[in-house]
Every structure is written in structure tokens, then in C-alpha cells.
Amino acid sequence: MCGGFPARLLGRTAPEAKRLRELLGLTDPCPAEIAEVAALALGSGAVDEALREARSRAAEAREQLATLPRTPARESLCRLADHAVARAG
């Protein structure tokens, strides 16, 4: 995800990007400011984009793992990839 979710969100050119940068720079945000960050993040489409990317990378990891011998370690890594995406989404 080349820089991750925050970089994708902050890289947006929408007018909200400036406000989001201001909010993320606060050292002690109040509950309303935290809620505003969440609303901006969800409204930007970046959350859905990050989840699509995570699902794609987990699928790629499982494909690569499938080339290894079937062992408990391989199965654990496959479950870890699935768990990471399920937990995020």
C-alpha cells in the first residue's frame, strides 16, 4: 500500500484534505475532532480503497504460499493473511 492508508488519505486533492491534515496534526483532539477525522476518512473513499488493496495483497500472499509444501506453518500464514483482512474490514 505504498505509504499506507494515511498517505492515501492525505494525498487527496479534495478541499477536505487540508482540514484533515490540520486535524491529524492536533496533539490532543476532542471527541468532535476525532469524529470529524472518521467522517472525512470514510467519506473520501480511501477506506474502501485500502480494504481492496489489503484483500488483493492477502490473496497474492496465499497464492505465493500455495507453492510451498503444505505444513502447519504455511497454514498458519494463510490464516494470518485472512485474519488481518477480516479484522480490518
Rank of each mutant, 00 (worst) to 15 (best):
18 K>T: 15
12 R>G: 08
34 I>T: 15
63 E>P: 11
22 E>L: 14
14 A>P: 01
24 L>E: 03
54 A>D: 03
58 A>M: 07
6 P>R: 10
44 S>F: 06
16 E>M: 10
57 R>Y: 11
41 A>S: 08
10 L>N: 09
16 E>T: 07
59 A>G: 12
35 A>L: 09
59 A>H: 12
62 R>H: 12
11 G>T: 06
27 T>M: 11
50 A>T: 13
8 R>I: 13
15 P>Y: 00
62 R>N: 10
44 S>V: 05
34 I>G: 08
13 T>P: 01
47 V>A: 11
26 L>F: 04
53 E>C: 14
50 A>I: 05
33 E>P: 04
15 P>D: 10
41 A>N: 04
38 A>K: 12
56 S>Q: 10
47 V>L: 15
55 R>I: 03
27 T>L: 15
42 L>F: 15
32 A>L: 09
54 A>H: 02
43 G>N: 00
15 P>F: 03
37 V>W: 04
47 V>C: 11
12 R>K: 12
12 R>Q: 13
17 A>K: 04
54 A>M: 08
54 A>G: 04
15 P>I: 04
57 R>N: 12
48 D>V: 08
8 R>A: 13
34 I>W: 04
12 R>T: 15
36 E>R: 01
36 E>W: 03
50 A>M: 02
35 A>C: 07
62 R>Q: 14
38 A>E: 15
31 P>M: 04
20 L>C: 03
59 A>E: 09
51 L>R: 12
29 P>K: 01
66 A>L: 11
66 A>Q: 12
42 L>I: 10
32 A>M: 06
20 L>G: 03
64 Q>F: 10
59 A>T: 14
41 A>P: 10
28 D>H: 12
58 A>H: 01
56 S>P: 02
61 A>P: 02
13 T>C: 06
46 A>I: 06
18 K>A: 15
28 D>E: 14
60 E>G: 10
49 E>F: 10
7 A>N: 13
27 T>R: 15
4 G>Y: 07
15 P>V: 06
43 G>S: 01
43 G>H: 03
35 A>G: 14
65 L>T: 08
12 R>N: 13
11 G>E: 05
63 E>W: 07
20 L>Y: 01
59 A>R: 14
26 L>N: 06
46 A>T: 11
31 P>I: 03
24 L>R: 01
29 P>G: 00
52 R>V: 12
11 G>L: 00
55 R>T: 12
34 I>F: 02
9 L>M: 06
57 R>I: 10
64 Q>R: 13
39 A>T: 14
